[in-house]
């Protein structure tokens, strides 16, 4: 991850590149209440995570403090602050999913594949994260594999889903 010292050393050209790209999202959500979250969604969609240097330029573009952006970024487990694997796996640990056995899903992924919650596998293929909540409590327990929601997931159905993923070269 980039450190503050890296950022200070960052060239004006690099900053300008980020600025131009951010401006597109800022314009898209201009004047919309709560646009910070929408812009962060767009950035994560494009980059796979929200890089520090992007947050810094966004703070300037929206004229808000960097701390405010990080308060939002860290409040929602949806946002990644580190680069993610090719395939993003989210297991919901909200109240309903917790009661319906989300812990079993996570245990299975840990033992079967050696995944670690909050981390990406060394081959950069899979990232496992807990989320609260995916807003689909009626389907608990829920997991999300990339953009697909796995309803009433079982350890078996989740494993099956992951094994079916194509192993793209990275």
């Amino acid at each position: 991850m980039t450190t503050p010292t890296d950022i200070i050393k960052q060239s004006p050209e690099d900053k300008e590149k980020i600025r131009t790209r951010i401006q597109k999202y800022v314009d898209r959500w201009r004047g919309v209440e709560g646009n910070l979250i929408m812009i962060l969604h767009d950035i994560q969609e494009a980059e796979g995570y929200v890089p520090r240097e992007w947050s810094m330029e966004l703070a300037k573009a929206l004229d808000i403090n960097l701390g405010r952006i990080y308060e939002v970024l860290t409040f929602y487990t949806y946002f990644n602050l580190k680069p993610c694997g090719k395939h993003a796996i989210h297991v919901c640990t909200g109240t309903a999913c917790h009661i319906k056995g989300s812990a079993k899903l996570i245990d299975e992924l840990k033992t079967r594949f050696g995944f670690v919650v909050g981390e990406t596998t060394p081959d950069r293929l899979y990232s496992l994260n807990e989320v609260r909540c995916l807003g689909a409590c009626g389907l608990a327990p829920v997991a999300r594999v990339n953009h697909e929601i796995l309803a009433k997931a079982t350890p078996e159905s989740l494993v099956e889903k992951i094994e079916s993923l194509e192993k793209v070269n990275v």
Binding site: P4, G67, Y70, E71, T74, L81
Partner: peptide, 25 residues
Amino acid sequence: VWALSFLERGIDTRMAPSGDISLAE
């Protein structure tokens, strides 16, 4: 000054510099 922010939530909440940096940074 904005050296400290309200980060994370629930049991993980912490008052800390934003973005995993030290207070000196």
